[in-house]
């Protein structure tokens, strides 16, 4: 640990961020989020519990689906940008949702003793005009695999389980559809 060098640089963040190795791992700026790394990651499907809500049936789904492309929106009911993105998700689902497994997943502790009840989640979903599958990730295992930075975060996985597109932040419907198309095209290319 080069304490002396560090102490010399403490006075100015700029100096710290510019010093040697730190430049590579420098101070993140709030607008320099990476976009879509992690392509090609492949995991076995996880079983995700889905809830009874508008557009969503109680049951389970496999994520990623072993037979067709899967799109997942990672959201939280506490997350204002997630609310902001709901209309874009609705439009994307309208346009391309039939071609993929299209779902939103929260890793909040939903249920008795959790951060919010299932009824509160359903109310949030309804208030924000969600009308597609909503899943729960109570141990954040799925979220930990695919969350691309912060919330909201979206991932499009092809039918063979490879991540083809992932990005965080509020997206437009066009951006979401373009991401999902990457998963569809990857599968077309495999055939």
């Amino acid at each position: 640990m080069r304490r002396r060098e560090f102490l010399a640089g403490v006075g100015s963040v700029g100096v710290v961020a510019g010093a040697g190795a730190v430049a590579v791992y420098g101070l993140p700026s709030t607008d320099s989020l990476r976009d879509g790394d992690g392509e090609g990651d492949r995991y076995d499907p996880l079983e995700i519990e889905t809830i009874d809500a508008p557009g969503s049936d109680a049951g389970t789904i496999q994520v990623p689906d072993p037979d067709q492309p899967t799109f997942v929106d990672f959201f939280g009911t506490w997350c204002a940008p997630c609310i902001e993105q709901m209309p874009a998700l609705a439009e994307a689902n309208e346009r391309i949702g039939d071609d993929v497994v299209f779902c939103s997943v929260t890793s909040e502790n939903v249920g008795d003793g959790g951060a919010l009840s299932e009824a509160e989640l359903v109310e949030w979903w309804d208030d924000n005009d969600g009308n597609w599958t909503v899943g729960l990730d109570p141990t954040a295992e799925l979220t930990a695999r695919y969350l691309e930075g912060g919330y909201p975060s979206a991932v499009a996985i092809d039918a063979s389980g490879r991540v083809q597109w992932a990005d965080s932040g509020v997206k437009t419907a066009d951006e979401l559809v373009a991401g999902i198309e990457q998963a569809l095209e990857a599968d077309a290319g495999d055939e």
Binding site: A140, A144, L147, Y151
Partner: peptide, 18 residues
Amino acid sequence: CPDGACPALLLRLRRVQE
């Protein structure tokens, strides 16, 4: 934290806790 970095950091600790 405005950009989601902090929830992502805490997610890593949460996964260890789980």
